[in-house]
């Protein structure tokens, strides 16, 4: 491919050439050794002006250009998503308008729904009619009640509640209370499989528990992480596994820590995951991505899309010690 002739490089060459020319001019004036005082004063004033222009050029042109360049290169690498639409020093109003247009074309809402769809149970793939599913589950529950098998009835009811929450509610934000209820329901279903091997608890570190429970968070934030903790952390653990959700509220953040004492992850794996989580990765939202390990990234993407890049998930893990997934969200009250 032919090398592109970048405009910024041309500006650089031009700036360097102008500087060399000015320096040469100043040098020529100085070595002239003129006896005239006026010439000396003129050359000194010229030097001061030249130095001032150099400083001004560095501070007001070069530095902003480099900053813009940095933001663009981070956007290209996928490390930053939002900063490019709000450049502190846009090149021109046209460029700013162009970026704003891109922002509209990218359609944030579409990204959110694509991302959410993936976390809404890939097994279903939208091929099953939800009402057909609920009716069938209700039918099974009724048969189980008639037959006197309470456990099957309870399990079916829990499963129906779980699917109703997962598929039917279309809102992006739900209350923390609803999310926790969904997690508890999910834990109830898992208990049929794991029995006493799986323990679950929720704790609060805040003044007013009721106020925290009313906070709004993206729908299906907690359950995919709990599922991850069970399948990747606790399932392979020998003995009882403990799953904990700790909720902390500060003046500006809602911090939810989902911890398991399972098998944990190695240093490099944790590093890699946290690197992908630190910024919005749009490629993860594509339909073709594999399911494995994508749940955390999807939840993270949704948080960043809804609230901004400063929020998201951070993972702490150590082999044979467990994994903590820390979700940082803004405090949004209904």
């Amino acid at each position: 491919m032919r090398n592109k002739r970048y405009l910024l490089n041309r500006i650089r060459y031009f700036a360097v050439a102008s500087m060399i020319f000015m320096l040469a001019l100043l040098l020529a004036i100085f070595i002239q050794e003129s006896a005239y005082l006026k010439v000396k004063i003129f050359s000194t004033v010229l030097t001061v002006i030249f130095l001032f222009l150099m400083y001004y050029g560095y501070r007001e042109i070069y530095r902003p250009l480099m900053l813009n360049n940095r933001i663009k290169s981070m956007f290209a690498k996928g490390d930053s998503y939002e900063d490019i639409y709000n450049l502190e020093y846009p090149l021109s109003s046209e460029e700013q308008a162009m970026f704003q247009r891109f922002f509209v074309l990218l359609d944030k809402n579409k990204l959110i729904s694509t991302s959410k769809k993936q976390s809404e149970y890939l097994a279903l793939q939208n091929q099953i009619n939800p009402h057909f599913l609920y009716n069938t589950l209700e039918g099974i529950r009724a048969e189980a009640v008639i037959a006197g098998v309470d456990t099957i009835a309870e399990m079916t009811e829990a499963l129906a509640t779980y699917f109703r929450y997962t598929i039917s509610q279309v809102n992006n934000l739900v209350s923390l209370e609803e999310e926790l209820a969904n997690v508890e329901n999910y834990y109830y279903i898992q208990q049929f499989r794991f029995g006493d091997k799986l323990k679950f608890s929720v704790s609060y570190d805040c003044d007013d528990e009721y106020e925290v429970l009313r906070c709004q968070i993206p729908k299906l934030t907690l359950q995919p992480l709990v599922e991850n903790a069970i399948y990747h952390g606790l399932e392979q653990k020998i003995g009882t596994g403990q799953l904990t959700i700790k909720i902390t509220m500060t003046d500006c953040h809602l911090i939810i820590m989902i911890s398991d004492d399972g098998i944990g992850m190695g240093k490099e794996q944790v590093k890699k995951i946290n690197e992908t989580l630190r910024s919005l990765r749009l490629e993860d939202a594509s339909e073709g991505s594999s399911r494995n390990g994508i749940a955390v990234r999807n939840v993270n993407n949704r948080i960043k899309l809804l609230f901004g890049e400063e929020y998201g998930i951070y993972i702490y893990s150590q082999p044979n010690a467990g994994t903590d997934a820390e979700i940082t969200l803004p405090v949004v009250k209904d």
């Binding site: 902390t248 500060t250 003046d251 953040h253």
Partner: peptide, 11 residues
């Protein structure tokens, strides 16, 4: 409510 004094974010 707790007030955050310092927060480092993916630094």
């Amino acid at each position: 409510m707790k007030k955050e004094i310092v927060r480092f974010e993916n630094v």
